[in-house]
Simulated assay, not measured.
Amino acid sequence: MPEPYIRTALPDDEEALGHLDRATWSYLHAVRPREQPPYEPFFNERFGPHDHLVAEVGGRIVGYVRLGFPTPLLSNAHVRQIQGLAVSDEVRGNGVGRALVRAVIGEASRQGARRITLRVLGHNTPARKLYESEGFVVEGVQPGEFFLDGEYVDDVLMGRGL
């Protein structure tokens, strides 16, 4: 598989990103039930195209990462947070997620952030291993924070300096 091309999302990417988001939905990473039609727009007041990096292979979007602020507080403005990551099943395991994580770390740094954080479900071993391999460390665990698909799941807080 060729290297993914990473770029900032465009307004015209909304339909493809919405489809990808719905196609990759799983309780492995989702804390809300599967969305049912009519679907909410992918972009909204809180997160627009400029808050997303997309991965393209062969001109087709195969992944995205969402970068935001963990809080609206000025005292927290030096921190960015990964608030969504999805990779198409057909390209998973080919470095697309890693390329997106590396790109979003670079973007956070370009924005002047000093730290980047994320939250990941405790049972999402593949994502946790990816984040750890890119320098993120567990900074806290909220045990049994979510009840998903019949089981209690930890919310794991991870972060790293920039």
Rank of each mutant, 00 (worst) to 15 (best):
M1L: 13
E3W: 10
R7G: 06
A9S: 14
L10G: 04
L10V: 11
P11D: 10
D12M: 12
E14F: 05
E14G: 05
E15N: 12
E15G: 10
A16G: 05
L17F: 06
G18C: 12
G18P: 05
H19P: 01
L20M: 07
D21Y: 14
A23F: 13
S26M: 08
L28C: 04
A30R: 04
A30L: 03
A30N: 15
V31Q: 11
V31N: 11
R32E: 14
P33R: 10
P33F: 09
R34F: 14
E35A: 15
E35I: 08
Q36K: 14
Q36C: 09
Q36W: 11
P37Q: 08
P38S: 04
Y39L: 14
F42C: 00
N44K: 12
N44R: 11
N44M: 09
E45I: 05
R46L: 07
F47R: 08
F47E: 03
G48K: 10
G48R: 09
P49W: 01
P49T: 07
P49Q: 03
D51H: 15
D51I: 06
D51M: 09
H52K: 06
H52F: 15
H52M: 11
A55S: 08
E56V: 02
V57G: 01
G58K: 10
R60G: 12
R60E: 15
R60Q: 14
V62Q: 00
V62L: 00
G63T: 02
Y64E: 11
Y64W: 12
Y64N: 08
V65H: 00
V65K: 00
P70G: 06
L73T: 00
L73Q: 08
L74S: 09
L74I: 13
S75Q: 14
H78C: 09
H78R: 12
R80C: 08
Q81M: 13
Q81S: 11
I82R: 00
I82F: 07
G84M: 03
L85D: 01
L85K: 06
A86L: 05
A86M: 05
V87K: 00
D89W: 12
E90A: 13
V91K: 07
V91M: 11
V91Y: 07
G93K: 04
G93Y: 05
N94K: 10
G97W: 00
L100I: 03
R102L: 13
R102N: 11
V104N: 01
I105Y: 00
G106P: 04
E107M: 01
E107R: 14
S109V: 10
S109L: 06
R110E: 12
Q111K: 04
Q111F: 06
Q111N: 08
A113V: 05
R115N: 11
R115S: 13
I116K: 01
L118Y: 05
L121A: 03
L121C: 01
L121H: 02
G122C: 04
H123S: 03
A127K: 00
R128N: 03
S133W: 08
S133F: 09
S133L: 08
S133N: 07
F136Y: 07
F136D: 00
V137I: 12
V137D: 08
V138Y: 01
G140W: 06
V141L: 07
P143I: 01
G144K: 15
E145I: 01
E145F: 15
G150T: 10
E151H: 13
Y152Q: 09
Y152P: 02
D154L: 07
V156H: 02
L157F: 15
L157T: 10
R160V: 11
R160F: 07
G161F: 15
L162I: 15
